[in-house]
């Protein structure tokens, strides 16, 4: 049976922030996505200059009570590092129990205080915590009191309509012992079509002394560097951008074909629910292939059919093929007119 090796302190996010600072750049971070930041995707983005990778949000309440939930929510391996597990919780008890169980297998733990999904907010999870600074500070303090430096703890927040409220929030969380903070430059009701407020993130960065990560509207390496410059943050997190282009931190303007090849390998080797595999590939290829091919991809009913779809229309290399994962442009097998 494969055993997991103990965590390497070099993979601690605080250490990574230091290293990146010495290199004169922000840390590149693949943010948490409900459902989509599972092991195959985490393994994929690590090929493309990504320094820190998040798990999807895991509900503490389910994780500590239910073995089946653990089985579907968290799979890993010895290469799954640096890894931050994001937790959705609304009380100290579930959080402490969750941290106790999971901390040996991750490099840090992040409390989700920003998820605007209404089902979670109703439960007092995610963005609901934005209006409960005392509770968040108490949760942070409880973890730090119990685990000290053994656990690196982050809180991910959104900004409030009144930035003063956000400043008071982060100061409280910092005082409670949070090791770093991620700030999404939107309020919980701002639509993603509205631009992220980087000035607000900059204000937060200036208000605290712990590292701050900027989140929002990072779709390219240029965006990343621009956001870091405006905000002065220690890291930049991409979420929607990295879902469409997992290679963005490596400077690619769109998902290279090699990225598709690697993802199919990881998804079939590690295992991933079919609809998630299909969605990842659709995100990577949307706008890059014709509408007809895109439609055909979306109509595949299961993974075997999807593999046949790729083999029929494209040259999808396997790991033992020369040049696997290296090609940038889409490798078509079919004649050109079908593509247009």
């Amino acid at each position: 049976m494969t055993q997991l090796t103990p965590r390497d302190p070099e993979n601690n996010p605080l250490r990574i922030f230091q290293r990146c600072k010495a290199e004169g750049r922000p840390a590149h971070i693949a943010g948490p996505m409900v459902r989509y930041s599972k092991l195959p995707f985490r393994a994929l983005v690590r090929h493309y200059n990504c320094d820190i990778v998040y798990s999807p949000m895991i509900l503490a309440r389910e994780f500590v009570r239910n073995g089946i939930a653990r089985l579907s929510d968290f799979t890993t391996n010895n290469f799954d590092a640096p890894l931050i597990v994001q937790v959705g919780t609304n009380n100290v008890t579930d959080l402490l129990r969750f941290v106790e169980m999971i901390h040996p297998y991750v490099d840090a733990i992040g409390i989700n205080c920003g998820c605007p999904i209404k089902e979670q907010v109703r439960e007092g999870i995610g963005a609901a915590l934005m209006s409960e600074p005392e509770l968040v500070a108490t949760m942070v303090k409880a973890v730090k009191d119990k685990f000290g430096s053994k656990v690196t703890l982050e809180t991910k927040i959104r900004i409030h309509p009144d930035i003063e409220e956000t400043i008071a929030f982060v100061k409280k969380v910092e005082a409670a012992g949070a090791d770093f903070i991620t700030v999404h430059g939107r309020t919980k009701s701002t639509r993603s079509s509205q631009p992220a407020n980087f000035d607000a993130i900059k204000t937060v960065k200036q208000a605290v002394s712990i590292p701050v990560v900027a989140n929002g509207d990072c779709f390219s390496l240029e965006d990343c560097n621009r956001i870091a410059k405006i905000t002065g943050c220690d890291g930049v997190m991409a979420v929607r951008g990295i879902l469409a282009n997992p290679a963005l931190f490596a400077g690619y303007s769109k998902a290279p074909w090699g990225c598709v090849e690697r993802f199919v390998e990881y998804a079939t080797a590690f295992g991933l629910p079919y609809r998630l595999t299909q969605h990842h590939l659709a995100c990577m290829l949307e706008g890059q292939i014709s509408k007809a091919l895109y439609k055909e991809l979306m109509e595949c009913k299961h993974l075997a059919q999807l593999i046949d779809f790729f083999d029929e229309h494209f040259i999808l290399k396997r790991p033992w093929d020369e040049g696997f994962g290296q090609v940038i442009e889409i490798q078509y097998r079919v004649s050109r007119e079908i593509r247009i």
Partner: peptide, 14 residues
């Protein structure tokens, strides 16, 4: 739950 997870650990997908 804690004992079960401590004994088995997370699922390892190599």
């Amino acid at each position: 739950q804690r004992r079960q997870f401590a004994k088995e650990g997370p699922v390892i997908n190599t």
